[in-house]
Computed example of a mutant assay.
Amino acid sequence: MPELDAEQARRRLAGAPVVRLATADERGRPHLVVATFALERAADGDLIHMAVDHKPKRTRNLKRLRNIAVNPWVSVLADHYEDNWSRLWWVRADGRARVSDDPRELHAAAHLLAQRYPQYRHRPPQGPAIVVTVHHWVGWIYSAEDDISSTS
């Protein structure tokens, strides 16, 4: 059962429809949410962009934002499951996140997200933006023969 190298992990995460964002509060208590995202290869490494959008939420004072403010270390997970277990895989990007209200960063995140998700083209996220600088890629695949073009 082979591990994926950083580039293989990056490609699989880039092709995933959504990710799970794991944060932890000041006491280390975990918090996990499903999130839309865009992956960008920047000059100094990989960046994962997310933004608070218009989907219904109880509050704009979100736990993930509060957690990042006190503990910026996060994990971003994508995976693939199906009944044919020989096609299973998962990828995790560990990194440092920051929350930004800067209009330029929010505009950049909204633009990248709109390229991936048609739902954002007419109603872009209003923010704030979350930017994760990836420090470490890790991943696993059941079978080395699994072809990325045939995964979701």
Rank of each mutant, 00 (worst) to 15 (best):
H135M: 06
K57C: 08
E82M: 11
L47E: 13
R98I: 00
R66G: 04
H54P: 01
H111C: 01
A129S: 13
T151K: 02
R92K: 08
Q115H: 11
G139Y: 09
G139D: 10
K55L: 15
V99R: 09
E3F: 04
L32A: 11
Y81I: 08
W137R: 09
S149M: 00
H31R: 00
P128S: 02
V138M: 11
A97S: 10
R20K: 11
P17K: 04
V52G: 02
L88E: 10
R11Q: 09
W137I: 09
A78H: 08
E40G: 00
V74I: 06
V18F: 14
P103E: 13
L65W: 07
D146R: 09
L21P: 00
S75I: 02
D101T: 14
E145T: 14
R116Y: 13
A110I: 01
A78K: 08
A38N: 04
E105W: 03
A35S: 15
V138P: 01
R121D: 13
T36A: 13
A42I: 02
G95N: 10
M50L: 15
R116F: 01
R123W: 06
P118H: 12
A129D: 10
S86Y: 09
A43S: 07
T133A: 07
R64E: 06
R41P: 00
L112A: 15
D46F: 05
D79V: 12
L13R: 04
V99A: 09
L39V: 14
D25I: 02
D79I: 14
E82F: 00
L4G: 12
D83H: 12
T133H: 05
A97P: 08
P17M: 00
A114P: 02
R104L: 09
W85F: 14
A114C: 07
G28Q: 10
P2T: 00
W89G: 04
H136G: 09
R58P: 02
V34A: 04
W90S: 10
S100N: 07
G95R: 08
A129K: 07
A51F: 04
R27K: 08
D5R: 03
G28R: 06
R116Q: 13
L88W: 14
I130A: 09
E145G: 12
D53I: 06
L32R: 05
H54E: 14
L32W: 07
E145V: 03
S150T: 06
D5P: 07
L77T: 15
G28T: 06
L77R: 15
L4F: 10
G139L: 15
D101G: 06
R58Y: 03
A9N: 11
S152M: 11
W73N: 12
Y142F: 04
M1H: 13
R98A: 02
R27M: 00
I48R: 09
